[in-house]
């Protein structure tokens, strides 16, 4: 059960420069949790002190914003693609 997670430029220093990381998990939340487990620098970037997703972090599962699906409970399958999309900066 492996999902490809696309990492945006400002977070790649926490994934040794990798643009895509293969992570296991059955839900979007599990995938992100496992991602933070293998790349600990990402934990504070993605999650708040209570362990919820920080409000401004946009996560997409197969091009759909998980906010409009089942949020962190959104089911994902082997071969799916998830993305952590940054806010748009500058000008």
């Amino acid at each position: 059960m492996s999902v490809s997670v696309r990492i945006p430029t400002p977070l790649r220093k926490h994934t040794d420069g990798q643009e895509v990381v293969e992570v296991d998990g059955k839900t979007a939340g599990e995938v992100l949790e496992n991602l933070a487990e293998t790349h600990p620098g990402l934990r504070d970037k993605l999650f708040d002190d209570e362990g919820g997703l920080r409000r401004f972090v946009n996560v997409f599962a197969n091009d759909e914003d998980i906010r409009f699906l089942d949020k962190l409970e959104t089911p994902v399958e082997d071969g799916d693609e998830m993305s952590v999309v940054p806010a748009i900066a500058g000008g």
Binding site: P10, R55, I88, A89, G90
Partner: peptide, 21 residues
């Protein structure tokens, strides 16, 4: 500036990690 390269402040740039204007 935003305090981190990964931020939710649309329109703003974190200069240490961005293309500096």
């Amino acid at each position: 500036q935003p305090d981190d390269a990964f931020h939710g402040l649309e329109g703003l740039k974190h200069m240490p990690t961005a293309i500096v204007p």
